[in-house]
Simulated assay, not measured.
Amino acid sequence: MVVPMSPGGGSDMSGRSIAAGLEPVTGKTITVENQEGAGGAVGYSNYLTYNGDPGYLLATETALINLALTQDVPFHWTDFTPIMKVGQDSTMMIVPTASEFNSCTDVVDAAKEGTLKVAVSGSVTGNDAIQFGLIEQSEGITFQRVPYESGGEAIAALLGGHVDVGLANPSEVLGQMEAGEMKALCVIAAERYEYEALKDVPTTVEEGIDVTFAQFRGIIAPGGISDEAKEYWIAASQAYVDSPAYTEYMETNMMQKDPLFGDDFAAYLEQYEKDLEAGITTE
């Protein structure tokens, strides 16, 4: 299992959890290898070299789409074989518990008054950058963006006081929230999370910020594999979704269940690309 991001972030957690969940249904040992760099571009580009080899999987997410839309990279999602969309999660705007900000509206107001440093993980054109950019466009503000390679590094910078505000998925910061180190100001979504620990976090829409964004997570195989190999991994993924390990992963990481497989996942990626391209163009 290739993870094209650094250890400690949401993509790394996703890849390791899915690999562990696939082991009992396949009877295989699935090791995890981080191939980080350039916000995922290094790992995805290197994955092209495994073309035709069904012995590899890659833990994918939104960077698969936005990197090809925003940077000169050698890959497109159609170069690979979509296997499974595990589900999706929405990002939360986060700050240290001691922060003066208590809402996303507070953050927007502060940005209108002066310089506000925000942590941008992945790359300058990654998910964080897109979401902050959409908020800038919606609210007529400008953030000072500080780039970090991974979500884990961005969170560390936020806790260390190097930046004022960050974005994270629940799985990346739930531990810090439970420990009283961080607080979530809002969810970048139209609807709240239903999980008990997050149900009181308002949405951007509730706060009058007309911006929403959902990140998918899943797995892809290399391009050029046989139909038999593709169906093998789809069947294994379907068995994983029916297992207690899947339910535990989704609930532990507070993700929204929405599994898709094979061609259905490919159709989702095609539409997601169109929607994301429209958002980037708007920005």
Score class of each variant (00 low, 15 high):
127 N>A: 15
145 R>M: 14
165 V>G: 06
162 H>M: 06
94 I>A: 10
252 T>M: 03
255 M>F: 07
135 I>K: 00
90 S>A: 06
229 A>Q: 09
199 K>L: 00
125 T>N: 14
108 V>Y: 04
106 D>Y: 06
82 P>T: 06
82 P>V: 02
58 L>K: 03
167 L>P: 01
258 D>E: 11
184 A>M: 08
92 M>V: 00
227 D>V: 13
272 Y>C: 02
152 G>L: 00
133 G>S: 09
280 I>N: 01
9 G>D: 15
218 G>T: 04
99 S>M: 07
95 V>E: 04
242 D>K: 15
269 L>C: 10
207 E>A: 06
187 V>T: 12
109 D>N: 13
121 S>M: 12
69 L>G: 05
181 E>P: 01
164 D>H: 06
188 I>W: 06
193 Y>L: 14
180 G>C: 00
213 F>A: 05
133 G>D: 07
47 Y>Q: 08
11 S>W: 01
102 N>M: 01
232 Y>T: 09
79 D>W: 03
76 H>Y: 07
46 N>M: 10
32 V>Q: 13
59 A>V: 04
38 A>F: 06
100 E>V: 01
93 M>F: 08
198 L>T: 12
283 E>F: 12
65 I>E: 13
141 I>A: 07
115 T>V: 13
46 N>D: 11
85 K>E: 15
90 S>Y: 04
220 I>N: 05
5 M>N: 14
40 G>I: 12
104 C>F: 08
33 E>L: 07
4 P>T: 03
272 Y>F: 14
98 A>Y: 05
42 V>K: 00
84 M>P: 06
65 I>F: 07
100 E>T: 08
171 S>A: 14
187 V>Y: 10
144 Q>V: 11
215 Q>N: 15
89 D>S: 13
39 G>H: 07
11 S>G: 14
241 V>I: 14
91 T>W: 15
165 V>I: 11
245 A>H: 11
3 V>C: 04
166 G>F: 05
176 Q>L: 11
29 T>Q: 14
209 I>M: 02
147 P>T: 09
40 G>K: 02
233 W>V: 02
10 G>L: 05
198 L>D: 11
122 G>S: 09
220 I>M: 15
191 E>F: 00
239 A>M: 04
170 P>S: 13
263 D>V: 07
244 P>Q: 04
32 V>E: 12
13 M>N: 06
78 T>V: 03
114 G>C: 04
110 A>F: 10
254 M>R: 10
146 V>H: 10
109 D>F: 00
248 E>F: 00
212 T>E: 15
255 M>L: 14
259 P>T: 11
